[in-house]
């Protein structure tokens, strides 16, 4: 088992290394659209992996990841706004802010099981949005905040910088997922997800277990929100906390394969470009596709694409 963990790690680093060279081969200024799509794919991998840690490995289905993403986004927007920090340097605080929120969320929502947990996360994300909307003196309310796109030291804030940052953030998310997937805690998370009562009867600290999945999950979701905000350059509560940011990671993970490290990657790599294509032809058509896929996969292909591939091989 040790050996396979090293192998996965080397493969991951190799992939990241090769993919990092892309801007050197293809000029980002000549193909900005391509890099926009790649950026979207990376962020989708990041957000879906974050969801997968909590929803797939720990069995706690969250309907509120938009909340963490939104809080992360506002951290990136407000630190430069109030304290004149560089937007890029505030990026890590997106994750930290979301993690602090997660402590609160865990305190409330982890008292609930299954569907009740899911509903409470949905409500908590909405509460976060309403607080941001209402606290006008601090957040500018519905007016929104503009984020100056400043360069990061010598690097210009262009497609290449966004692409590489998002790529490595997605890499960090995958690293977290692989680490969890190969640690002992994977078993505890699974057990708690299946039956909290049975797990604690055996001595597993269910609350700590769930928290240990929620914190990294929230951190990564916050980072996703943060980098998205930087990329867009503008932020308002409506877009930052948009419900689709809660639903999209669920769809990508379910379609790719829930509870597997590669599931969200497969889902994002296939669906995000497909949706970009659809979006350019029929606006909102991509959302319809999302809905249909979610129903079809949950109902008929529970293991997702990876599950199908695996079954074929056996």
């Amino acid at each position: 088992m040790k050996r396979s963990s090293h192998r996965d790690l080397v493969a991951l680093l190799l992939c990241l290394g090769v993919l990092s060279l892309l801007p050197a081969v293809i000029d980002t200024r000549r193909m900005p659209y391509l890099f926009d799509v790649l950026f979207s794919v990376n962020v989708a991998v990041l957000l879906a992996s974050s969801w997968n840690i909590l929803g797939g490995f720990a069995g706690q289905v969250s309907f509120g990841h938009a909340g963490f993403a939104g809080i992360g986004a506002y951290a990136v927007a407000l630190l430069p706004h109030h304290l004149q920090w560089s937007p890029w340097l505030s990026l890590p605080f997106a994750g930290i802010a979301a993690m602090i929120a997660a402590i609160l969320v865990g305190g409330i929502a982890f008292r609930l099981r299954g569907p009740y947990f899911a509903l409470s996360t949905l409500a908590l994300a909405e509460v976060a949005r309403l607080v941001v909307e209402g606290w006008r003196s601090f957040t500018e309310g519905t007016q929104g905040v503009v984020i100056q796109q400043k360069p990061l030291y010598l690097f210009e804030a262009d497609g290449a910088l966004f692409y590489i940052t998002s790529l490595w953030l997605a890499g960090i998310a995958l690293l977290a997922v692989i680490t969890i997937g190969q640690s002992k805690s994977r078993y505890f998370l699974h057990a708690v997800g299946e039956s909290e009562e049975a797990a604690s009867a055996l001595g597993v600290d269910a609350w700590r277990c769930k928290m240990s999945a929620l914190l990294p999950s929230a951190f990564l979701a916050g980072m996703a929100g943060g980098i998205l905000a930087l990329h867009t350059g503008f932020l308002d509560p409506e877009s930052a906390f948009s419900i689709s940011r809660s639903v999209e990671p669920i769809i990508l993970t379910v379609v790719g394969g829930i509870g597997t490290a590669l599931g969200p990657v497969v889902g994002a790599v296939i669906l995000v470009p497909a949706c970009e294509f659809l979006r350019s032809r029929f606006p909102t058509g991509h959302l319809l596709l999302y809905g249909v896929l979610l129903v079809v996969f949950m109902r008929f292909m529970h293991g997702g694409i990876l599950g199908m591939v695996r079954r074929k091989r056996l």
Partner: peptide, 9 residues
């Protein structure tokens, strides 16, 4: 009383 196995393991 009602066995609670961890399904999926």
């Amino acid at each position: 009383q009602i066995p609670r196995c961890f399904a999926g393991l």
